[in-house]
């Protein structure tokens, strides 16, 4: 049986100051495990974008990060409003964030595009009014 490690995080949807805590924690652990700096960077950026999305759009949620010998699998699950048009949301610059969020420097419409750019595989499972589960995979080699 091959080894794998799983880290679990809860994202607080009310607290902007804590957004990025989970990705920062994962980053530290990946480095300690000896994952190459390039891969660590991809995971950190992709996961941070996901975390911010959970705070901005979905009042938080749960993140599970599984590290296997081949890949890092991040599962971000929220019970938010769901994404009405995934195709549109994937376009760079498309944003539904309100003025308030934008004034904080977020909501540039790069969240999902960056998550796609920095992960090797991205799947989005979303249902309006029910929630969204995003799975991102980053290959280790």
């Amino acid at each position: 049986m091959s080894t794998s490690v799983t880290f679990k995080y809860t994202v607080d949807g009310e607290d902007f100051t804590r957004a990025g805590e989970a990705s920062s924690n994962v980053k530290g652990k990946l480095k300690q495990m000896g994952v190459s700096p390039d891969v660590v960077r991809k995971v950190a950026i992709a996961m941070y974008e996901g975390e911010i999305n959970m705070v901005v759009h979905a009042k938080g949620g749960d993140i599970t990060v599984e590290v296997t010998p081949e890949e890092i699998i991040m599962t971000l699950k929220d019970v938010g409003p769901g994404i009405p048009d995934v195709e549109k949301a994937m376009q760079a610059g498309y944003s539904t964030a309100n003025e308030n969020i934008r004034s904080l420097g977020f909501g540039a419409g790069m969240g999902l595009p960056n998550m796609k750019k920095y992960s090797d595989e991205l799947t989005i499972d979303t249902k309006l009014g029910v929630g969204t589960t995003v799975v991102m995979k980053v290959k280790i080699n």
Partner: peptide, 14 residues
């Protein structure tokens, strides 16, 4: 780093 290489690091992180 916890281990000699990634495989070792993964086992040690566990």
């Amino acid at each position: 780093n916890l281990g000699r290489d990634f495989a070792d690091g993964l086992a040690k992180m566990e």
